[in-house]
Structures are given as structure tokens and as C-alpha cells.
Computed example of a mutant assay.
Amino acid sequence: MGEEVKVFGSWGSPFSHRVKLALQLKGIPYEYIEEDVYNNKSPLLLKYNPVHKKIPVLLHDGKPIAESFLIVEYIDETWKLNPILPQDPYERAMARFWANFIDNKCWPAIQKANRSPQNEREKSMEEASECLKTLESALHGNKFFGGDTIGLADIAANFIAFWLRIVQEAKGIELLSAEKFPHLFKWSDELVNCSVVNETLPPRDKLLAIFKARFAAATEAQ
């Protein structure tokens, strides 16, 4: 078809990874463009996402789409092979429900737990644990949130499967463990070790070093 597919992203971003993974699941070749989101956003990024000025952005035949969830759904609707969302309307609604729960409840709670000062950490850790407990029950003993195949909620929860475990190691905290959440922990292993996911993930050691340096600098600043 000769389609032009480009992804503007950041190598360590779980939101960029969602888009790369969706394209990989579909077998769609694309050009990846790395953005310096902290110091020097490119004119193209600002042109294609003038509202939020953030990554990721998908460019499909010159048409830009921003926001990771909207991009993943666009990819699923544009390329029908290997569907990410179920065909059944109720199951589609449930997939979107859990994806929204992950982004709107779990992500802020986990961010808060990671960033809270010592005197507030216990409470924020409890709040994040409650979110993980809810997710654990949502798996219903399945391999993935999407059943036997990776679906929208699995893509949404990529930061729990990969990024959270690196943050835990860097900071010396424990939210997700095999003892606390056996089904969610097993899911995280299944997802990260799935070849199509693994080949799109950023280098673990590089991320770990960055998080360790960031947490050390934050501790010194207190």
C-alpha cells in the first residue's frame, strides 16, 4: 500500500511504547522519530501536536493523531489484522473501562506513591496497593486482561508490568510482588517476556540507572 507511518516518541516513555507495541502487534512497519521532550521539542512535534505539545504522535499518510489511547484505537480500526479490542460491544466497553481505570486511577496513585515524602508514603502506598488489588481481580485468572491475547488493557498497563518493577528496584519500595499480587505479578512476567512486547521495550539497565540517579538527586534536594 505504500503507507507512511511515523511515530514521534521518547525511548523511555511507557506512552510511546503503547503505540510501538500496537503497531508491532499488527505487523505494521513504521519510522520511529526520537524526541527530546525535556529540552528541545522538534518543530514537527509542535506542528503535529500543537494542543498538548507531547509525545506520542502517530503520523499516518500525513495525518497526525495524538494521545496514546486514541492512537492505539486508531491503529486497531485502521488495520484489522490481530484485533486489539474485542468485537463484542460489551467486551469492548469493558476493555475501555479497565484501560481508563489504569490511566486515571492506577497511574496517578503509583506516581504519588513513588514521589511522596517519607511521612506520607505509607498512605500513598496503600492507595496504590488498592488499585493493584482491583486490577488483580479484573484478570479473572486469565493470562492477559484480553484473555489469551494482548488487548487494550494490557497495553495500557505496560508501565505496571515493566516500568513499576524497575522503579521499585531503584527506590527500594515494594508495591507489586508475587506474594502480594500473585496473578498480577504472573501477568507482568507473561507480558514482558512475550516476544512482540519484549522487542519493543527500552533497555532495562539504562532505565534503572536513570531512575536511581533521579531518586538520589531528589533525596539530596530534600
Rank of each mutant, 00 (worst) to 15 (best):
F211T: 07
W187G: 08
C131A: 03
N198Y: 01
F8A: 13
E35W: 09
Y74L: 13
I150R: 00
W107R: 15
D154P: 03
Q111A: 15
R115K: 13
I160G: 07
K212S: 08
V192A: 03
V19I: 11
N104Q: 13
A138K: 10
E130F: 06
Y38I: 12
V196K: 01
I71L: 02
K6F: 08
E67L: 08
T200N: 03
A178D: 03
L21W: 00
W98S: 12
V19H: 05
E169P: 06
W107Q: 14
A218M: 06
N104C: 11
V19S: 08
A178S: 09
A209P: 01
S124A: 12
E220F: 03
L46Q: 06
S42R: 07
S42G: 10
E130M: 09
P203L: 07
E34W: 09
G146F: 00
Y38Q: 14
Y48W: 03
S13E: 06
K53L: 10
S13G: 10
A157I: 05
Y90V: 15
Y38L: 15
F69Q: 14
R96M: 10
F159H: 14
V196H: 00
N142E: 07
P108L: 05
A113H: 02
K123M: 10
L139W: 00
N119I: 08
P86I: 12
R204Y: 09
A170Y: 05
N100M: 10
W163E: 01
L175C: 04
L58K: 10
F145I: 04
N39H: 13
I75C: 11
E174W: 00
K180D: 11
P108M: 05
E3K: 15
A156G: 07
E179I: 15
K112I: 05
W163H: 06
E34H: 11
H52Y: 14
L139A: 01
E127P: 06
I150Y: 00
K6T: 15
L191A: 08
A216P: 02
K80W: 01
N100D: 15
G146N: 01
F8V: 14
N158E: 04
F181P: 07
I166R: 03
I33K: 11
V197K: 00
R214M: 10
N49I: 09
E120M: 13
F15I: 12
F97T: 10
P203H: 05
L201Q: 02
H183T: 11
I71H: 02
I28F: 05
D148Q: 12
D88C: 07
H17L: 15
N49E: 06
A22F: 09
I150N: 00
L164C: 08
F144V: 03
E174Q: 14
A221F: 03
F181E: 04
P202W: 00
G147L: 05
R92H: 10
F162V: 07
K53C: 11
N193A: 13
A22G: 14
A66T: 14
R18P: 09
I102V: 15
G9D: 07
A217T: 14
I166K: 05
N119G: 04
E67M: 08
N82W: 06
P43W: 03
A221R: 12
M94Y: 09
